[in-house]
Write a protein that binds this DNA or RNA. Structure first.
Lengths: 227, 227
DNA sequence: TATTTGAGTTGATCGAAATCAAACAGAAGA
DNA sequence: TCTTCTGTTTGATTTCGATCAACTCAAATA
């Protein structure tokens, strides 16, 4: 079930701090916020399906969204997980107005929706909007390329190590953090079966990583970097 | 050895038909062409290296360029092959001005170079330029996501079949085309070792594909689609 | 014509991760 | 408290593709 609502104050703040809008002068950002609608989704809700007409692109306000390709034989391959402040599917502004992938909520999620046609119009009037959109596209492009390279160069334990390191503050020797979503979701994001993720965590024990539920403890950050 | 030159007439035409400039009104495109420099590279020349400061992004005029990540232990993973009319490394406009990947020519190549700083300035004045850049970014983003999904869902022979089908005209039952670059380059693009590509071609014989040097003949396009 | 060189293929082996199956643990519900 | 359900782990097996090595073939060179 989707409910469409107006933005509340808290949501407005999250949105203004998102990667996309934070690039803009505050007056411009405020104008865009006025045209945003909010969609509230339950867990496991489909947001859109590949092949559908694309009327919106999205910024996540709360929760996590899984974007994936569905193959002919029904298997799914994740191409990205997006969390609060992140924008996804901006590509539909320029690819013929059709979604090329499926998107589904991982849990209860609220989304800010930008209308494609309206944004195109705004972008054609104000260069700053185009530039902010480019920054967002560019960020997502870099992540996708990084993902291809990571998949092709590194083993499962190495990819998990990379992910852990991205979630560690820089210049510390040990750290601890909590996974913001299920392990099975992380497995998908890294292109692994859940079993492979589990085994990868075991393999990282020797590098000082211990896992308790969703809490991950890194004993020696440098050891992990050289894994 | 790099030689920097002015555009000749032929190069100017290729550039105006490139994915990036063809999106623009001809007056705008002409203005950008005036600020482009041409770099002429020999085969196997490095164009830039990951970590380097990024002063330009590029559109290929002739030849093919390989963009790849170099890992700590010296292995390389291709993230894209770019040919005539395609633009690469536009991401550097927004990622802090540093190249995140390496680029190398596969053969003798001529490139049109756009100065990042100048393009940013132009984009901040004319919304159409930003929109054209977005279209280019968006195209490259889609390709990268497609690549992730393809890697994760399909076996080597299936990926090769997909590549072949992308190079077939639509709605024909049989076709024939010539690879525009070396097989080893194609192997890299598909994330395969050259041996694996060779074996994949053999596997596709049963689906009516025959290979003579760089010429690929597809006996039954539909059989290939269902491979 | 003989020779060298590089691209591509073929064969044998190995390793990483998918798959299938079963056990296990923690949270939610009766 | 006991049961149920879902997410995660562990074990056994299989499959795919990397790797290493040898070989073929064609083009380039002498």
């Amino acid at each position: 079930m989707i409910k469409v609502l107006k933005l509340n104050v808290r949501e407005k703040e999250i949105l203004l701090r998102s990667y996309f809008l934070s690039e803009l002068p505050s007056a411009t950002a405020a104008k865009l916020v006025d045209h945003v609608t909010v969609a509230s989704h339950e867990a496991r809700d489909p947001i859109f399906k590949q092949g559908e007409k694309a009327d919106y692109f999205y910024t996540v306000l709360t929760g996590f969204v899984r974007v994936f390709r569905l193959s002919k034989d029904g298997r799914e391959a994740d191409i990205g997980i997006y969390g609060p402040g992140e924008t996804f599917a901006e590509g539909v502004m320029f690819n013929g107005g059709t979604h090329r992938f499926c998107a589904q909520t991982a849990e209860a999620v609220t989304l800010a929706r930008y209308e494609v046609d309206r944004l195109k119009q705004f972008a054609s009037q104000d260069p700053a909007i185009g530039i902010a959109l480019m920054a967002s596209l560019s960020r997502n492009l870099d992540q996708a390329l990084e993902c291809v390279a990571d998949d092709r160069l590194h083993t499962a334990p190495q990819r998990v190590a990379n992910f852990i390191l991205q979630n560690c503050p820089d210049n510390v020797s040990s750290a601890r953090f909590r996974l913001p979503f299920q392990k099975s979701l992380l497995a998908g994001k890294l292109g692994l079966a859940p079993e492979a993720l589990s085994r990868a965590f075991s393999a990282l024990k020797s590098a000082g990583v211990s896992v308790h539920g969703r809490v991950i403890e890194i004993g020696d950050v440098n050891a992990l970097k050289n894994f």
